[in-house]
């Protein structure tokens, strides 16, 4: 049974159909990477899974359970199983790092305070920011903020973690610290769907690469199959442009 099964998912922005029937599956502990040109709908897939962009058709299953995005309650159920990290980190500016990590576990999940706090400290250690628990986001670098955002998402103990171009807003020298943190999660067996332009990183960690263009999946397969022997002209064209440097 796949851990995440997305079948024929569609989404619209107004009249514009931005997802024209997306289908892919991943097993527990696997990492799927969505790649493709800007505007191809990669980020929209993640937003649709989180109920941030309404789904207009198709089905989503998590661990065999059907997710139905038709009511606010159903959307909450889907959000309860996943967590997302955004390109721009989106840390809550009015809160410390610790408060960012513990807000939802305490107030929404209603977990035990002592456990939540110690878990938050463990996660800050994992992303190498144990000393920043009391800092506000305006005191942190972009890379630090993104690592906090990663820890914040993990604090929700998601069944699936969604990463939306998490290194795209970072200065080049800060990219690796974030990628290192994601590598650790991969080693821990976290199931992830990532949208990334870091092709070397995708090749290294992903079990499955999904190449998208214009709201559709053009090709999907192992990193080696997609990067080295793309079957379609569009994929070949795209990778020849970005893998050259």
């Amino acid at each position: 049974m796949p851990h995440l099964a997305v079948s024929d998912v569609r989404a619209k922005y107004g009249a514009l159909e931005v997802l024209k029937g997306i289908s892919f599956e991943i097993q527990k502990g696997e990492i799927a990477a969505l790649v493709g040109p800007s505007g191809s709908g990669k980020s929209t897939v993640l937003r649709a899974l989180m109920g941030l962009t309404p789904i207009t058709g198709g089905a989503v299953e998590i661990a065999g359970e059907a997710m139905n995005y038709s009511s606010a309650r159903e959307v909450r159920a889907a959000r309860d199983r996943m967590a997302i990290v955004f390109q721009q980190y989106n840390l809550f500016q009015n809160m410390t790092v610790m408060q960012n990590l513990t807000l939802a576990p305490l107030k929404i999940k209603k977990w035990d305070k002592a456990e939540v706090t110690s878990e938050a400290r463990r996660l800050l250690g994992l992303v190498g920011l144990s000393d920043k628990a009391d800092a506000y986001s305006d005191q942190l670098s972009g890379g630090q903020q993104q690592r906090v955002a990663l820890a914040r998402a993990l604090a929700l103990k998601p069944q699936i973690l969604l990463l939306d171009e998490v290194t795209s807003a970072l200065d080049p020298e800060l990219v690796n610290e974030v990628l290192d943190a994601i590598r650790k999660l991969a080693d821990e067996g976290m199931t992830m769907v990532i949208v990334s332009h870091e092709m070397a990183f995708v090749r290294e960690v992903a079990d499955k690469v999904v190449f998208m263009d214009n709201g559709q999946i053009i090709e999907a397969g192992t990193p080696a199959a997609i990067f080295d022997e793309p079957k379609t002209d569009r994929a070949r064209d795209f990778f020849s442009k970005i893998l050259r440097h």
């Binding site: 989180m50 109920g51 941030l52 909450r76 959000r79 309860d80 967590a83 997302i84 955004f86 721009q88 989106n90 840390l91 809550f92 500016q93 807000l103 939802a104 107030k107 929404i108 929700l156």
Partner: peptide
Amino acid sequence: KTQVEAAQAMNLSRLQ
């Protein structure tokens, strides 16, 4: 609006 989306993604209600 991204602050609101981050909160929504964590299931915070509109009032929260």
